[in-house]
Amino acid sequence: MTDLLARLGNIAGHYNLYIAILLMVAGLYVVIARGNMVKKLIGLSLFQSSVYLLYLTPGKILGGTAPVVDPRFAIYSNPLPHVLILTAIVVGIATLAVGLALVVRINEAYGSIEEDEIFARDEATVKREDRAASRPPRRAGKGAR
């Protein structure tokens, strides 16, 4: 009984990992399922945030202090993951910024930020180009025969 309780406690004690997994899957799902480009970027941010949590979790030691060099503290949290995630957050922000800037430009160029609408317009462009390209060469081809 105590064994089971301990295991349950152990499982519950990893709750932040479960949250990380939840964020990861949810973020990826949003990227996959949503056609709206801004929503995709939100999903991407969620997905990246999960990684921050994944890194930070093992870095924190229960009862540990901040990594301050002082003889009174023997147990302190590993500073490295925090530093890494600081960098990763910067990278994430930069990505989001570039992504949003692209979406703004796409909206200006297409008047839409829905992927399926944009594809429909691209397809129309391709068909127009093919038509324009196929006319003169066919004539030239016949002449060459």
């Binding site: 990826l28 990227v31 996959i32 399922a33 056609g35 992927e115 594809f119 691209d122």
Partner: peptide, 19 residues
């Protein structure tokens, strides 16, 4: 160009194939 392997794919399906 319009075939399954040659056409443009939505971003979501690329992500899905990665997953």
């Amino acid at each position: 160009p319009q075939g399954a392997l040659g056409r443009n794919w939505p971003t979501g399906s690329m992500a899905l194939s990665a997953a």
